[in-house]
Nucleic acid binder design. Structure first.
Length: 140
DNA sequence: TTTGAGCGT
């Protein structure tokens, strides 16, 4: 019967890719363990710091999967900050807690969790929540 | 060319 073939064809077209639906579930914003905790934002780097030395410094606290330093495309020098990828968030936290504030190559190092990259959207920096131009009056 | 808050192809 032709009707049977049509039904089959319709079914095939209706099914499409079930994987697409799964993708939506996987990219749910309410994911329990965000991988953002494994990415560390390292600032305060000297202009002569390379990825190798940075990785060597952070690899002592855990498994460093990758280290990336932002370089200036014009001058080719490092921008003074980079990103360190850890395999475990516990190692990342240890490294952050240990290397944050420590001097690296003569410069104070600042380590914090990297912000999640958002496509086509401004990066939210929860750092400037402490006011700005107002003078802080200390209470004793 | 030289030193500093920051968040990336």
């Amino acid at each position: 019967m032709k009707n049977s073939l049509v039904s089959l064809a319709r079914r095939a077209l209706t099914v499409q890719n079930p994987a697409a639906d799964w993708r939506c579930f996987c990219s749910s914003p309410s994911f329990p363990t965000p991988p953002s905790n494994t990415k560390l934002f390292v600032a305060g780097l000297s202009w002569s710091v390379d990825e190798k030395s940075l990785k060597d410094a952070f690899s002592s606290f855990g498994d460093v999967t990758e280290v990336r330093i932002m370089y200036d495309k014009d001058s080719g020098r490092s921008r003074g900050f980079g990103f360190v990828y850890f395999s475990k968030e516990v190692d990342a936290r240890s490294a952050k807690d240990a290397m944050d504030g420590k001097a690296f190559l003569g410069r104070p190092l600042r380590v914090s969790y990297a912000l999640e990259k958002v496509r086509g959207g401004p990066i939210v920096v929860p750092r400037r929540l402490n006011g700005g131009d107002d003078n802080n009056s200390r209470n004793s």
